[in-house]
Nucleic acid binder design. Structure first.
Lengths: 234, 234
DNA sequence: TAAAATAGTTGTCCAAAGTACACTAAATAA
DNA sequence: TTATTTAGTGTACTTTGGACAACTATTTTA
């Protein structure tokens, strides 16, 4: 089974930084660690890679196991591998980040592991180097969202322009000009206007939009500029 | 020593996609694999992680061991971890990409492992999934170089504007307008003009420039736009 | 019925950046 | 001295980005 001789095999885990949006705030999904050391301390959702699965498969399996979540937008983020990062044993972690619409997945959240959503500025201290992972993932989210339309992954299928703007404003912790924002947004051609309105959040009501899926996929790699002066936020 | 029980430890390697520039062409540094299977077939520079070193340390150690190269610009790129990617044994590879000035490091290249530089379009077939790694790294290079001034890492300390332009044209396989290119470039404030000229490549001679190092480091994260319509190249 | 709140459109002004192309400058070679 | 080659600047036009004003529309509440 060990065919390359003289080399050391090490434990490899995946950890997932899960960003969610509930329509008003951006949150992070955490669980309480189930084993010693640091049992019951808060942590990212993670677990070890099995011999027959790819890291992507592992990340998805662990995510479903611990939270019940499936078919979630996820991308490989970064490897954390300093010796000593896990005090128990040398462990390498492949970090992923995921973006989800909190309401859409609310029902699925696992009873067994009771994961909880935390506001970004009300987060508990995390185990190991997970605080650092989160810090870097937040930065990465701002970076990538300034270039590509990934934040749509945080919204329900139908959403309003004010909702989308609130989301961007949450990510960048700033206000954008409504008029310029909606003008830019509509000019991308990414959105399809629906006949219905959302009447909950305002008196007038805001029209729902959905993504033009094929246009979205074709243009995902193209640069977008919904965020003014993005580099000042990193 | 194994403290988390019931989990499988796996081999972890680093592989490095090393881009070099010799003043005219972009090349890739490859070595011939020293062990079975696929012995003597061309491969990226890689090796296994030792128990006490971080992945970054491993990548640097392996790079120095196999090529003699030290203090090279390197960044973490992507993990390749599909089971079966190495037919011998499950191996996970953390891929890095490195950028170097070929002439600067020419003397250091290891005799023992005789690595060789290949033009991108004259590359031999590589072992395992290394062809795919190279394909993705080329794409990543184009992506990142469109946003940040990383290509300077491929040039000697003193370089001319025409050299730099040739480099960009090599990366994007296209021609840029000389006049606009140099004007954009100089307006970044990244360059310091030197009193000497390079008289080798032209009659008039082109002034040497060097990087304003502190300005470079401060602005590394800022977006730059030396490449017109960058997204058409991905 | 009027005031208030939010959604959404349009327009204007200004600055900065992108692009095309003509031109000048410096050195060498014939 | 003149032609040639390559380096680098200038100029004119267009496009885009961003700040902000004005106005309309729709519904609720006082």
């Amino acid at each position: 089974m060990h065919k390359y001789s003289g080399e050391t095999r090490i434990l490899v885990a995946t950890d997932c930084i899960i960003f969610g949006f509930d329509g008003a705030n951006i949150k992070l999904l955490l669980v309480q660690r189930g084993l010693e050391p640091e049992k019951n301390k808060w942590s990212l959702i993670g677990g070890f890679i099995k011999p027959t699965e790819s890291p992507e498969d592992a990340a998805n399996r662990v995510l479903e196991l611990r939270t019940g979540l499936k078919n979630v937008y996820m991308e490989q983020f970064q490897v954390f591998g300093k010796p000593g990062r896990d005090p128990v044993e040398r462990t390498l972690s492949i970090a992923y980040f995921a973006l989800i619409d909190i309401h859409q997945y609310e029902a699925q959240l696992s009873e067994e592991y009771h994961p909880e959503w935390f506001l970004l500025d009300e987060m508990p201290d995390l185990i190991f180097d997970h605080n650092e992972m989160v810090r870097l993932a937040k930065r990465q989210l701002r970076y990538k969202a300034a270039l590509h339309p990934i934040l749509f992954q945080l919204l329900p299928e139908k959403f309003t322009i004010p909702q989308l703007q609130a989301l961007y404003e949450g990510v960048y912790q700033t206000k954008f000009d409504d008029r310029n924002f909606s003008r830019k947004l509509l000019s991308t051609g990414l959105l399809v206007k629906l006949p219905e309105k959302d009447k909950l959040s305002s008196k007038k009501g805001a029209f729902y939009y959905k993504l033009d899926q094929s246009h979205y996929e074709e243009n995902f790699e193209k640069f977008l500029n919904l965020v003014p002066n993005p580099d000042k936020f990193f």
